[in-house]
Amino acid sequence: MAFCRIPGANMQATQPTFFKQGPKPLTRVLIFSTLSVALLVGDAYYQMLARVREQISVLLYPLQWVATAPVNAALEASSFLQRQTELIAENRQLNDERLLAQGQAMRLKALEAENAHLRALKQASEHQPRQSQLSKILYNGRDPFGAKLVVDLGERAGVKEGQIALDASGVVGQVVRVQPMTSEVRLISDRGHMVPVMVERNQLRTVVYGSGRQNLLEVRNMPPNADIKAGDVLITSGIDGIYPPGLPVAVVSKVERTAGSAFARIQCKPLAGIDQHRFLLLMNPPATLPPYPETSPTPKPKGH
């Protein structure tokens, strides 16, 4: 914009440059500040700028790709140069494991067939195996206020809002914003992010809250006498309709029961390597839950 409004050479020839500044900077800054604030308000409270964001993100995708390409290339090169002997040893070991796994797989197949039969009998859809996609992490969101990742699959790859992100050891987060080429994953450690969980040991239902990127997760509002102790594993309970049941989320690392307070202070460590991997599995959300019965009181607020 500034390029076209102020033809530099022309002005220099006709006017003493010292006095000339173009349109007043103050008016310009006022215009752009107002515009920014309007955008902020529009984005924060009305979410009406999704289209704008999508357009800009397509523009940015080549840059994002170039920025991450060298790192990926270096990682691939280093893995290519692994020593031969290591590979051979690993190969042998994997062969052994494969044999073992095949045996188990045979048993699993029988179980699966049985399971499918039972499921057909029960006509329940919530435990259907779901479609999932492997996606690569492009980068961490730079914003230190939230805990977000940007991954390399977007709308074009069929990613949808509400999909959950997993790694090999547990839940990582949830897709919150989908752009044509990329999408944003909100980590479970993001402040205010809630996951409905239960204690694996005794099926005690509760909710685990994120409390900031580098902080541990928290279980709030549990009475001091609740049966929960350090070392308990929390798995998703599946009652929110977002996270399917049975996925490991966190392990309780500390339980403080202070005499004065109404609630126990329970801290948990996420099981998934939230800051460690380069690949995430995006899994489709469960099929829609049956509606609440009509006689029920107001529905409970759901965790997101």
Partner: peptide, 30 residues
């Protein structure tokens, strides 16, 4: 280069940064 580069460009770049980071749209721009 105050003649060639000004507030309008700063604003545009801010928008790009906002989208790249997944922030609120407009915080970098402002």
């Amino acid at each position: 280069q105050p003649r060639r580069f000004g507030i309008a460009w700063a604003f545009t770049l801010g928008l790009l940064m906002d989208v790249a980071d997944g922030n609120l749209l407009g915080q970098h721009a402002l």
